[in-house]
Nucleic acid binder design. Structure first.
Lengths: 338, 338
DNA sequence: TTGTAGGCGTTATCAG
DNA sequence: CTGATAACGCCTACAA
């Protein structure tokens, strides 16, 4: 049996409510009884029952975090940034991997609602997600990170994906590439759609004809990049450069390319997105668009806590800077046809 | 205000305890009232309050997980494996990053104890950790993953680190290397100590003289590998091969080597440990010792649930297979002095 | 400064 | 099969 506030009270010769007061640092309490109670608390190794407390106070000091997959370094960084500031503020995080499945997302949300988490960090929202709208309607504290919802420009923190997609594509164009392929993320996510949009905008700007065959939908994982790139290689006229919607997709693409004994960047230039820690270690070091992942996670929780602690339910949409990191996976186009 | 069991009861015209019974699938309850109640539940969007329930039942269906850093792919994989089977069994996981700091670990344990988690997955235990012994004494459900405690051969799941360290070192020896350096993990962790032990054993087996200057303590992160390798390069007689206690350390080492314009594997051979997903993508693809990380996380939770649900507090020590994965970061020694 | 009493939302036990 | 009641451990008016 766990020791309770009653046990402490009894041994200290005071009333439970007095013990409660010293635990909660109530000002009006004599130094003497305070010391006495604290002594007993330590002696018994008493830890207040957060469950009982939560029942009364309606605060659990626990946040829920939904992401597709913690194994993806992008989300691991975000999770770390989030957990750090949560911890610094006395909160914990329940981690949930949804694999970007709407059904898993729904179930997790229901469970977390049942566990009465104080707020939600969502890295997994589909474009038009009814669950989010419901959170909005019920004024349940939430922050979207790296995702946002159609027609809801608030409570989210993102980078400008359109701009990022454009930067990447424009960089390749300026290197002389014209047949630039794009491996997208899941097109049910806003970020994938926006990076694609940026890609198209760059084409328009430089008056390059857009071709459907050069765009393939991936899954933000290595495997997807591999599969899509394989298709690209079979094209009558394969691309000379690939812009992948994230670094993992880029790695998958690079894997096929090298497996077929082509070289990067001599035969194919590749650009990724995110700049995960290992992007500089792959071969060749990957040129990519950097997102401030740790910072995004941290900021998400900061905003969430503002909602929770200060009741400011409407947080603005935060758009952070992204940046082109040039390494060695791209090259000026080789005029000799491959 | 959240709707409660009372609201449902009232609307359904039954007693709260009846509602409770349908929620918990109590057998003896008429189909008719059951249907009626369920109808109301859906209508009101009622979700049982897990906090209140937990207070009564003393079960939270929440596990605590302590790891050094979720940003380390090794722990991300373990966490994913763990969360998957937790979720499949109706449990959630609170994730805690300790940075391998004993103090953070203690604080987290205290918080999790307060939150009455049903069990603990510990990937962060120091060699002789009093906290663990206390869990043991109090029969609090816990499983150690990839770590174990001096003199406590139970409730843990590991690979044979001694053997792994030996395999790695022996491989290098057989390639003709004699000046083999070792970058260890933090020597307060059992796994680091054991890999070092394996390294030494291999030396003994092949009657190679052990030299202190060829062993440097790292931190299981890229940075540590970088720093230790820098020291190795300054040696009068630098090593020709490096066995790093994990892949991240290996990457750090590779970074310095290449920065100084040496080549891998021509000038230096490198072996890592873990086989994180990206090990095959770095340059050159990293030879390493593979651990079944996902499986370790999954098994940890399975064992933990056995303790929690079936009360079998003493789980055996599970030793999983590790395996040498040969890629391209090692080479037979070049007799010409570098 | 401290004690008293009631309630947070459930479930478990006991009746009926 | 269903209702009544107490209890889980804590907090918080209110009273003293």
């Amino acid at each position: 049996m766990n020791t309770t506030i009653k046990d402490v009270a009894e041994l200290a010769g005071v009333h439970p409510s007095t013990v409660s007061r010293v635990i909660n640092n109530d000002s009006r309490i004599s130094e003497k009884t305070k010391e006495k109670v604290i002594l007993i608390i330590n002696k018994l190794g008493y830890t207040p029952n957060a469950i009982a407390r939560g029942l009364k106070t309606k605060r659990t000091y626990t946040l829920g975090m939904l992401i597709p997959d913690i194994t993806n370094p992008f989300f691991a960084e975000i999770a770390r940034g989030a957990e750090d500031v949560a911890n610094a503020n006395g909160f914990n995080i329940i981690l949930c991997n949804t694999d970007d499945k709407l059904k898993k997302e729904r179930i997790y949300l229901e469970i977390l609602k049942g566990k009465r988490v104080d707020g939600l960090i969502l890295g997994t929202a589909h474009i038009k997600d009814k669950s989010i709208l419901e959170l909005e309607r019920k004024k349940f504290p939430y922050i979207l990170v790296s995702r946002n919802i159609e027609g809801l420009d608030k409570n989210c923190i993102i980078v400008d994906d359109v701009e990022g997609g454009m930067m990447a594509t424009e960089y390749l164009i300026k290197l002389g590439h014209r047949r630039i392929a794009h491996i997208t993320g899941p097109l049910k996510t806003r970020s994938a759609l926006n990076r694609l949009k940026g890609y198209k905008l760059a084409f328009k700007k430089y008056e390059i004809e857009y071709r459907d065959e050069l765009v393939g939908e991936g899954d933000f994982r290595i495997k997807g990049g591999y599969q899509v790139m394989k298709r690209f290689l079979k094209l009558a006229e394969p691309p000379t450069a690939i812009f992948a919607a994230n670094d993992l997709l880029a790695l998958g693409a690079m894997q096929v390319i090298q497996k077929k004994n082509f070289r990067i960047p001599e035969d194919f230039s590749v650009v990724g997105f995110n700049d995960i820690k290992l992007a500089s270690f792959v071969y060749p070091p990957l040129t990519t668009i950097r997102q401030p992942m740790l910072e995004m996670g941290a900021l998400a929780v900061k905003m969430l806590l503002k909602i929770i602690e200060e009741g400011e339910f409407n947080q603005r949409k935060e758009v952070l800077e992204s940046k082109l990191i040039i390494r060695e996976s791209c090259k000026k186009i080789n005029k000799i046809k491959i």
